[in-house]
């Protein structure tokens, strides 16, 4: 199962500048995707998850078009050919 992940500018130092990374998670959840991403880009998961292993307060992750805070968080299912976006939270106007 291949899942593509959009990497924000701020994290591209971990991906050799790549804006998109494709991984093959062993479990079909967001947690599995982050685990696979960490294997491909060591160190990146600590930027996305806090010490307790939870999503950091100022990180938004979308699976396809859904903010995972509205779905099941790290347990959100990630299907075949899903697209995951990691986006720093910004406030608005």
């Amino acid at each position: 199962m291949a899942v593509s992940i959009r990497i924000p500018t701020i994290l591209r130092t971990y991906t050799d500048g790549a804006s998109e990374v494709t991984v093959e998670p062993s479990t079909p959840t967001l947690a599995g995707v982050i685990e696979a991403l960490e294997a491909a880009a060591p160190g990146i998961s600590a930027r996305v998850l806090d010490e307790a292993g939870q999503l950091r307060r100022f990180v938004n992750i979308y699976v396809d078009d859904d903010d995972v805070r509205f779905t099941d968080g790290l347990a959100t299912p990630v299907g075949e050919k899903a697209s995951v976006s990691i986006i720093p939270a910004v406030a608005g106007g």
């Binding site: 924000p8 701020i10 930027r47 996305v48 950091r56 307060r57 100022f58 720093p88 939270a89 910004v90």
Partner: peptide
């Protein structure tokens, strides 16, 4: 720049 490289904080 707008987000912290360390923790994504504003």
């Amino acid at each position: 720049a707008y987000a912290c490289v360390e923790c994504f904080g504003p």
